[in-house]
Structure formats: structure tokens, C-alpha cells
Design a binder for these strands. Structure first.
Lengths: 215, 215
DNA sequence: ACCTGAACACCGTTCAAGT
DNA sequence: ACCTGAACACCGTTCAAGT
């Protein structure tokens, strides 16, 4: 029932997940879903539950490292594995943001993360702060503030555009000219999401490890 | 025009911001808005523009610190000031997440952040990574993964509930019992958002400062 | 140039009714 | 116990028509 909902969202995006579409995919006619499910909110709760359970299944083995130093490696592996799951369900982060109550799967997930912190010798207090600090990164995603502006403002010569932008956003333009290698004119679409995600994640994990050691 | 849209959202929440409601607030009847604005997406673009410009106005003075070491202080002040703006518009982060194109105000904002990094001696490459790492934190908010579950599962004795949860989520329950002081049974609603935000922010800024110094 | 009214396609949801 | 059809309230949006 919920798994077909996930499939509908995977294929047509989240906006394709309407009650009528879902009913069609279930080969049942229209409003029969309401017998099994109270409302659409429950469907959205359900699909995130399915996705998070996929994450849990993705990392069953690495839950409890023996050595204290191994917490970082295990945490990193767990989070990056979850990220792989999310890449198969690109709509999931947005839906998860809108869930206010914590589902059972999410609680299990955070419990596992906490377990890793504890295995690494974190106090509950520090582990609690750490969980907040990681935020959505603990579930394998980060709000991607940067997307290319594919609209008209760039439909003329990109070099001319850069020049025009230079007075308004001097540092941004300078950065673009210094960092971008392969695609000189392509505004901001060239960022390697995986690299950036790991950079931020490691920054967090290294900082937390330092706090752990200093007590 | 857009400012009244912000007011409507401030008063009634984001779900109250419908074209018909907005028209009523403008004391104009219904569909006249479409003469001034192409569609609702443009309205949402507009309101984030207004909010981000509020952020820009909130920190005009601290844009360029002389000393290299001051970058962190200035960045922290800028971000926390933006956070104060967002507290007046609690619906704004969710809307900003859904914008894909970068508005002029957002570009200006990021340009200012970049300027602070540069003033601190960051290379453009490191500053670029830093921007990604900060993510939404650069704009004063972080995805708050934790909200209390106010629904029925807790309508019996909280201590009994904790006991029942203990086998499924041992680390979570243990953490709750160790960290929570003032409100022992109140699931997870007691977290101090401001404290947690600053903890995560400082973790990032400290890590970035360390990378900056090591070259 | 600016606003309006009626209408359309679509959404989540209710409810009495079928088997 | 499970499904259906018709209907309701609401949404964003179109378009020909008004001043």
C-alpha cells in the first residue's frame, strides 16, 4: 500500500502523489484508500517511514564498533549509506521536513546514531548537542541552498552576464572565476554535491571528535 | 503588494497565503493580482525576497571587519541577526527551501557572507566549501529535526511510556533521562533551539577557522 | 492601464450507498 | 469488511469582458 505510494513518487515526483493517482496505481478506484488510511498526511507519514526503514536496512552490520576511535568511521559510513538511499528518493527530504511528529523508524534511526555516539564515549549531554548540530545531515542530506538559475537572466553571453553581476555581487563573481574549472560560465550548477556534503559532514564529525576528547 | 503578503503569512501562517486571501487583504477583489504578478510562485519568490532584504537591513554595519581574526565574530553576529529576523517570520524557512532559483537578495546575502570569509583570509576555494558546509545555517536557521510528538501515544503516564520505549529506543530514553532537567517527561519538546543552533554554528565556525589557519 | 466575474481543472475529503 | 459514486469546499489559473 505505502510501497506503491513510494513508487509513484519515485516515478512522477512528489507532486504526482495525489490520492487519485495513488488509487489508479493501486488499480483501485479513487476513494477506497480512505478505508485503509485516515488522510493524506498519514500517507506522507507512511512513505517517510518506508524510506527511513530502507536506511535502517542499509546499515545493519556497522551498528556497534568495538574501539572508541571507530565511532567516526562508523557514523560516516552509516550517514553516507543513508544518503545513497535518499538519492533513490529525491523527493523524500522535502517530505521529511514537513513531518512534525517523529515516526517509529526515525526514532529507531536516531537511537542508532546515539548508540554510535555512546560507543565513542560521548556523554549523553554532548551526544544530544551533537544530534542537533548534525541536524538533517544525520539522515544523509543537507539543505542544498545552491541551485543554478536556469531562467532567462543568463540567456545572453555568460561572460557579459558575469561582468554585469560583478558590481552587485563582487565576491560571488570572483569566487566563480576562481573555483570553477570545468564549466567557466555555468553559474552555480557545477558544485559537486557529494564532495560538498562530505566536506560539511567531516567538518562536523572532526569538531565533535575534538569535543569528545577534550571531555 | 508583497509586503501585505508577508503580513498575511505572519498572521495566519503560510497556508493562509492563498491568492483569494491575499486579494482580500489587499482590499481588491480576487483575481486582480494576476495583472501585477504572473502566478503564485512569483508571490512566494517575492515574499522571500522581502524577508532576506530584512536580513540585509539588519546587519549593514558589521560587513567589513579590519582584523583577520574578527571574521568569526562578524559572521556570528550577522547570522544570529538573520536568525532574529526569521523568528518574526516562522514560515519563511519552509518557503525558502522550495525556491530553486536564487533571488537577487539571496545573492546579495551570500555575497556578504563571502565578503566576510575573504576578509578573514579564506581562499575562494575554502570559502566556497564553507558556504556549502554552513548551508541553511548561513541564513540563520537549521532544519529542526526534533519536535515533540504531541499526539495520543503519550496520553497515558509519561513514565510508563518511557519504560515501554526503553526496549525499542534504549539510547534515546537513556539520553532523555540524563539530559532533561526541568521537564522530565516531556518527550523532546524541551530543547533550547537557540542554544542548539549556536552550538552547531560555533562547531562549524571553529572548524572553518582551524582550516583557515592551517592554510 | 487596471480590475472583475464566470468558468475550468484539479485537489483532499465526506457520506450515504452498494456488495 | 471492503469498495464505489456523487457531491462539497477549496485551490490556482484562464479569459473574455468591463471601466
Amino acid at each position: 500500500v505505502l510501497e506503491t505510494a513510494v513508487r509513484v513518487a519515485d516515478e512522477g515526483g512528489i507532486e504526482a502523489l495525489t490520492m487519485r493517482n495513488l488509487a489508479e496505481a493501486l488499480e483501485v478506484e479513487a476513494m477506497s484508500i480512505y478505508y485503509h488510511v485516515p488522510n493524506k498526511e498519514a500517507v506522507l507519514d507512511g512513505v517517510t517511514e518506508v524510506v527511513v526503514r530502507e536506511m535502517l536496512d542499509a546499515t545493519p552490520a556497522i551498528a556497534d564498533p568495538e574501539d572508541e576511535e571507530g565511532w567516526k568511521r562508523a557514523m560516516r559510513a552509516k550517514i553516507l549509506a543513508s544518503r545513497q538511499v535518499l538519492l533513490r528518493h529525491p523527493w523524500a527530504p522535502a517530505v521529511m521536513e514537513t513531518r512534525k511528529a517523529l515516526s517509529v523508524a526515525v526514532l529507531e534511526y536516531y537511537d542508532g546514531v546515539l548508540g554510535l555516539f555512546r560507543a565513542g564515549g560521548f556523554s549523553y549531554d554532548l551526544a544530544h548537542h551533537a544530534l542537533h548540530a548534525l541536524g538533517s545531515r544525520a539522515m544523509g542530506y543537507a539543505p542544498d541552498s545552491f541551485e543554478p538559475d536556469t531562467d532567462d537572466p543568463g540567456h545572453d553571453d555568460p561572460m557579459v552576464l558575469l561582468g554585469a553581476m560583478k558590481e552587485r555581487f563582487p565576491h560571488l563573481v570572483e569566487m566563480l572565476q576562481n573555483v570553477s574549472h570545468d564549466a567557466p560560465g555555468a553559474t552555480l550548477g557545477w558544485c559537486d554535491d557529494q564532495t560538498e556534503f562530505e566536506f560539511g559532514l567531516d567538518l562536523m564529525l572532526d569538531g565533535l571528535d575534538r569535543l569528545r576528547r577534550s571531555g
